[in-house]
Nucleic acid binder design. Sequence first.
RNA 1: GGGCGGUUAGCUCAGUUGGGAGAGCACCAGCUCGACAAGCUGGGGGUCACUGGUUCGAGCCCAGUACCGCCCACCA
Length: 818
Amino acid sequence: MEPRPHMEPLYRPHGVEERWQRAWEEEGLYRADPSSDAPSYVIAVPPPNVTGALHMGHALNGTIQDSLIRWHRMRGFNTLWQPGYDHAGIATQAVVERELRREGTSRQEIGREAFVERVWQWLHEYGGVIMGQFRRLGSSLDYERERFTMDDDYIRAVMRFFVHLYERGWIYRDNRIINWCPDCRTSISDLEVEHIEVDDALTYARYLLADGDGAGDGYVTVATVRPATILADVAVAVHPSDERYTQLIGREVIVPVVGRKVPVIADDRVEPEFGTGALKITPGHDPVDFEIGRDHGLPELTVIGFDGRMIGDIPDMLVGLTEEEAGDYVVEWLREEKLLEKRESYRHAVGHCERSGTRIQPLVSLQWWCATEELARPAIDAIQSGRVRFHPPVHGRVALDWLTAIRPWNVSRQLWWGHQLPIWYCPDGHVTCAETEPDACAECGTAELRRDEDVLDTWFSSALWPFATLGWPDDTPALRAFYPGDVNSTAREIIFLWVNRMLMAGLELLGDIPFHDVIIHSTILAPDGRRMSKSLGTGIDPLDVIEAHGADATRYGLLKMSSGQDVRFSYGPIEEGRKLANKLWNVARLLLADVGDVVPDARPRELEERWILARIDTTRAELEADLDAFDFAHAVDRLYHLTFDDFCDWYAEAVKPRLYAGDEDARATALAALERLLKLLHPVMPHVTEEIWANLPRRETRLIVAPWPGPDERFAADVGALVGVQEAAERFRRSGVSTPLEADEKRIFDAVVRPERGGGGGENGNIEAERERLRGEIARAEEMLANERFVERAPAAVVEAEREKLERYRRELDALGG
RNA sequence: GGGCGGUUAGCUCAGUUGGGAGAGCACCAGCUCGACAAGCUGGGGGUCACUGGUUCGAGCCCAGUACCGCCCACCA
C-alpha cells in the first residue's frame, strides 16, 4: 500500500482518476479468467467504429456497462467486459477516400490492393482512439482481449458464418431492386435508408392511347415526381375495380418522348384515390413498380446508371445528363406536345443514404441476399418466451414486430474495405462458396477461378460479436467460459441492425441466446432538444465534461439524467455528481482526521450508529433492486441522498462530538460505516471511492475487488430510530418550538441542530404558529374521517393511517398546551 | 400512412397497485460551526398541456383534443 496522501479540503479528480485507471489495469484487475470456477458475468461492448471518437452516447453506455460490471465483480462474479472495434465498412472507406481525393488521386486509380493497404495504414495512424477514451471514463474493459472485426480470426468466423448460411441454402444471388447510394457507390440495406421529407413537383402527364378510337379523351393521365423515369416506363397500372379505367385494361398507351407502346394492366396495389388513380410502371427504378413488374412479367428497363447519369435506350441528347436535367427535358417535351396536364408542388418522404445524405436511387442490380425467415424464428421465440428481455420492455415488442415481418437481407456491398465474399466463379459461371480460396471449381473442376469483388455488409460481421470475440468457430476456453453472455446495452437505433441479428446468429450458430437482457439506453439530446451532432455544432464532447468535472461526476450525471427515452443534456446532474464526490471526500477527511491506529470495526453503542448501519443496509437492498431492474437514475439518486442526508447531515453530525472526544468505538464504527458506503458508491463513482479507500487504515485490498456487502439484519429494527429526533428538528427549525426528547435523542438533536447557534428561536419559539399548523392538519384529517364514503370504501390501511395521523397531531397539540 | 413515447416549479427531470405535489440547479434570506463557502440552514415559486368521464378521492385509470419528439413505411 502506498503512503496515505495528504487529503485536501477540495477533492480534485485530476491525477487521482488517471492514477487509479493505470493501477487497476496494470494490476490486472480488469482481466477475465477463462479458467475461473466463479459464475461469469459478461457484457460485450457495442464495438465502436474504428475511425470514431467518443460521443455522449458512448459515455452513457460505457457508464451503464461499467457500473454493472464493477457491481458484479465486487459480488464475486468472473466478469468479462469485452472491448473492441468495428471495421465500419462504408464509414472507414469514405474517410480514406476523402483523404485520397485531397491528394488528388482516387481508389480506382491506386487499385484495390493498394487501397486496402492504405486503409490499414490510416487505421494504424489515426484509428482506434476510443478505447483510450473509454479508459479515461474509468471503464474496466478487459483491454488485453481487444478484438477487431478485421482480425484474421474474426475474418475466419465471418467466412464460416457465410458458408454456413450458404450451405443451409439461405444465401442466394438475385437481380432485384436495391437501395443504391450514388455517392457511396454501393447498395445499402433498407435499415440504412433514412426517409426525409422533401418538396417535389408532381407532374401529371398524358399517355395517349395507341389505338385511339375517339372513345373518352383518348389518353390516360399519370402522376410522377420523377419525370425522367418516364423513359423507362413499361406499363400503366390501374386498380381492377376502378370503374373509370376498366375499359382501358388490356389496351395500349404510348410512353411520351420514347414512343413505346405499353399495356394498361390491372393491379390492386394501385391506390385509386391517389393522383389520377393511374400509375406508370417503371420496374427498373421503383420498388413498388418492380414488384408489380415481376408479377406481370414486364421487362425491367434501366435509364439511370450507377453514377446517377442517364443511360440506355433513350434519345442521344439525354445520355449522360443527371436525372434532374433529363426530367426537365421530359417536362418541356410534354409541354410542347400538349401532354403536360399540370404540375403541382408535392411534399413527401424520400429515402436518403443515412451516411452520405444522398438521395437513394432505386436500381435493379445483381446482389447477394440472405433469406432471414428461418433465422428469425428462434429469435422471435426467444423474445416471446421471455428468455430475452428488453429494458424498457416496449422495445421488445418493436424488435419482435421487425422480426415477424422480416425481409430478405441484401448482404453484398460494392466496397473494397470489408470482408470480401467467399464466393468464386469459374469461366462457365459456376459458383463455389468456401471458407478459404478453393483449388478448383466445385462443379466443373477448373482451376481458373475469380473471386467475387463485393464485401459483406458491416452488420453481417457485427452479428457475430458476442462469440467471434471469444474465438468461435474454435472451441476455446474463453468461449466455453463466457458464452452465453448476460447483458447487451445499446442505442435504440441499432436494435434491428445489431441486436436482432446477434440473436439470430447466436441461436443459429451456437444454439443459445448471446445475452438475456437488452438495455436500450436514453438518447441524450443537445440542451436545446436537437440531436447532438457535430455538423449542427450541437455536440458536447464527453471528454471535455470529464476534463472539467471529473469522470466520477460525469458518470453520476449521465446515469442521473438517463431516465426517459430522450433526455436533454444539462450540467445540473453533472454538478450534482461533483458535489457528491466532494462531499464524500470531506466526510472521509472528518472521519480519518486523527484516526491513530483505529481500524474499521462495526461495534455500535449509540442510537445514531445502529441507525446509519440500518440505513446503509436498507439502501443496499434498494440499490440492488434498482440495478437489477437497470434503473440507474433511481440508483444514483438513492446514493446521493444516503450520502448527503443520512450519512453526512445526520450521522456524521451526530457522532462528531464523540470523535472529537477520542471515542475509539465511535471511530471504528464510523470507519466501518464509511467502508460500506464506499462499496455502494464504487460501481458508479469508482475513482473517488478507491482513493478514499486507500486512505483507510490497514487496507490490504483494492476497493474494485472488495466484496460487496451482504445483507445485515442486525440493526434493521433501528432503521426508523431517528424519526422522533428528525421530527423534533423539523419543528424546531420551522417554528423554534422545542420538543421533549429522551436523553440520547436530545444528545443527537443538540449535535445536529445546535440550537445554541441560532436558526430557530430557542425555547420561546413561535408556539402559536406551530399550534395553528397542527390545527390545520387535524381539521383536514377530521374532515376525511367524517366522510362516510371514504371510511366505507377506502382500503382499511388508508383509513387506519389517517386515524393514526389524527391521533398524533392531537397529542402534539396537547403537548404544546393547545 | 401505421406504431410508440412525451407534456409536472424559471431550467433539467422524479413521482413505485389512485389516498396530503418532489429532487437537483437557479433565485431570496440567514449562518465566517474544530470535514466541506465548491459548505450549512431556511424560504418563495406549480390550474400536474387541454376537455370530458370513472371514483368518497385522479398527476396517476378511461375517452377525446392540441403540441413536441422518435421509430417503421412500396400513395406514384
